[in-house]
Simulated scan of single mutants.
Amino acid sequence: MTTELIVQSTSLPTVMEELRERAGEYVKNAHSKNTQRAYKTDWEHFEAWCLAHDRTSLPADLFETIVPYLTAHAGNLKVSTLLRRLTAIRVIHRARGSKLDTSDERFRLFWQGLRNEHRMRPAKKAPLMSPDLRRTIQALPMTLQGHRDRALLLIGFAAGLRRSELAGLWAAQDPQAPGWIEETPDGLVVQLATSKTNQDGEEEEAIGVPFGRDETVCPVRAYRAWLAMSAITAGPIFRPISRHGKMGQRAITGAGVALVVKRVVGKTALAEGLTLDKALALAGTFSGHSLRSGLATSAAKNGAPGHAIQRQLRHKSFTTTLEYIRIGSLFEGNAAAFALV
């Protein structure tokens, strides 16, 4: 008795097409979602410029197209933005089977000159220090939005999370969840499936968030109160809330996290007597990163060991952590304090 394996020839193209599509998704997922969105925007900008100036975008000539494009936007865009756009153009070329070689010495000299002339010291946003965080938390109302903002700020601060990591947290583990929170008797455990420095998800990233000694600024209690009020049991933890108090179903964005920080800082400043203009100016000095930098700088100022700060922030290099420690301890053991006696 023989067994025949019959494969219909008509099914083969369909199968191969599905395999090609899946392979394409693997290539696409070599970069994070945020990077993919940035590259898409950068490429669309480059394509539009090429169309307006009768240039071929793919394949693009290095000196006839790329150099004029970068020159046209130098001074209007930051050097870091131009570098990202150049990287996006190079990545798109490579993905579509074309090579854009930027190793030419003439181009290297051009880029170095552009960078030297338009280099700007990046404007760093202010860290939200623990005393300031405490004041903003205590000023929040006991509304749905107030409970969300309280939990978001305290967890983001205590865990030292990047804004995208904070926005991506889910209430329970799920294959689609970028991260989630687990409750334990000792506090919360923030589990990150992927992160900026762990895009492959090959390393386990667990961050402990202990109970706060002061109940009014305790991240664990704030988290539990938010879940109880919002009735969230699965899916994204932090979601948009309309001005009418209606909560959405999708996750808040990283930009949304930044807006929460700016809004609560501004409202607290207004409540403390600042004018509207001064409150807005103050709020503008903060960002979503202010929670992460605020933890590190506050911890350093209060004498936390450097290795503990590095572990909470998950820095690969202690050199990065040292910058926070330097800022947080500017006046600790300052030589001038011993000299001016």
Results as ranks from 00 to 15, higher is better:
residue 48 A to M: 07
residue 36 Q to R: 08
residue 45 H to S: 12
residue 55 R to S: 12
residue 26 Y to R: 15
residue 29 N to A: 11
residue 34 N to Q: 02
residue 44 E to S: 10
residue 50 C to K: 06
residue 48 A to S: 06
residue 37 R to H: 06
residue 34 N to A: 10
residue 55 R to W: 11
residue 48 A to K: 08
residue 47 E to R: 13
residue 35 T to Y: 00
residue 54 D to V: 09
residue 27 V to T: 11
residue 38 A to Q: 01
residue 36 Q to H: 03
residue 40 K to C: 09
residue 45 H to G: 05
residue 48 A to P: 04
residue 30 A to H: 10
residue 34 N to P: 02
residue 32 S to W: 03
residue 46 F to E: 01
residue 33 K to Q: 09
residue 27 V to A: 15
residue 55 R to F: 14
residue 48 A to H: 08
residue 46 F to S: 00
residue 29 N to M: 01
residue 52 A to R: 07
residue 41 T to I: 15
residue 30 A to V: 10
residue 47 E to K: 04
residue 53 H to G: 03
residue 53 H to Y: 08
residue 52 A to W: 09
residue 30 A to T: 13
residue 32 S to K: 00
residue 41 T to A: 15
residue 31 H to N: 06
residue 48 A to N: 05
residue 44 E to F: 12
residue 40 K to F: 09
residue 36 Q to S: 03
residue 41 T to N: 11
residue 46 F to R: 01
residue 31 H to W: 04
residue 40 K to S: 11
residue 54 D to H: 15
residue 38 A to D: 04
residue 47 E to H: 07
residue 40 K to H: 11
residue 28 K to H: 11
residue 53 H to T: 13
residue 54 D to R: 15
residue 53 H to N: 15
residue 45 H to V: 13
residue 36 Q to M: 08
residue 45 H to P: 03
residue 33 K to R: 02
residue 28 K to A: 15
residue 55 R to E: 14
residue 27 V to I: 14
residue 55 R to P: 11
residue 28 K to N: 08
residue 39 Y to P: 08
residue 33 K to T: 00
residue 37 R to T: 03
residue 47 E to S: 10
residue 47 E to F: 06
residue 46 F to N: 00
residue 53 H to F: 09
residue 39 Y to I: 00
residue 45 H to I: 05
residue 34 N to V: 05
residue 39 Y to G: 06
residue 51 L to R: 10
residue 32 S to D: 07
residue 47 E to P: 01
residue 37 R to W: 07
residue 41 T to E: 14
residue 28 K to E: 14
residue 48 A to W: 11
residue 42 D to A: 06
residue 54 D to A: 14
residue 34 N to W: 03
residue 38 A to P: 06
residue 38 A to I: 00
residue 28 K to G: 06
residue 26 Y to H: 13
residue 49 W to S: 05
residue 51 L to E: 09
residue 55 R to C: 14
residue 39 Y to A: 03
residue 34 N to E: 00
residue 50 C to L: 07
residue 43 W to Q: 12
residue 44 E to I: 10
residue 33 K to A: 07
residue 37 R to M: 06
residue 53 H to E: 13
residue 41 T to W: 14
residue 42 D to P: 02
residue 52 A to C: 10
residue 37 R to G: 04
residue 45 H to K: 13
residue 27 V to G: 10
residue 52 A to I: 02
residue 29 N to S: 02
residue 39 Y to L: 03
residue 46 F to H: 00
residue 39 Y to D: 02
residue 35 T to F: 02
residue 27 V to E: 13
residue 30 A to Y: 09
residue 45 H to M: 11
residue 39 Y to C: 02
residue 43 W to D: 09
residue 32 S to R: 09
residue 44 E to M: 12
residue 36 Q to I: 02
residue 55 R to N: 10
residue 27 V to Y: 14
residue 39 Y to K: 03
residue 52 A to N: 10
residue 50 C to G: 06
residue 34 N to G: 04
residue 47 E to W: 09
residue 29 N to V: 01
residue 51 L to G: 04
residue 42 D to R: 06
residue 36 Q to P: 00
residue 39 Y to H: 06
residue 46 F to A: 01
residue 35 T to R: 01
residue 43 W to T: 08
residue 50 C to S: 10
residue 36 Q to V: 06
residue 33 K to V: 05
residue 46 F to Y: 07
residue 49 W to G: 01
residue 37 R to A: 05
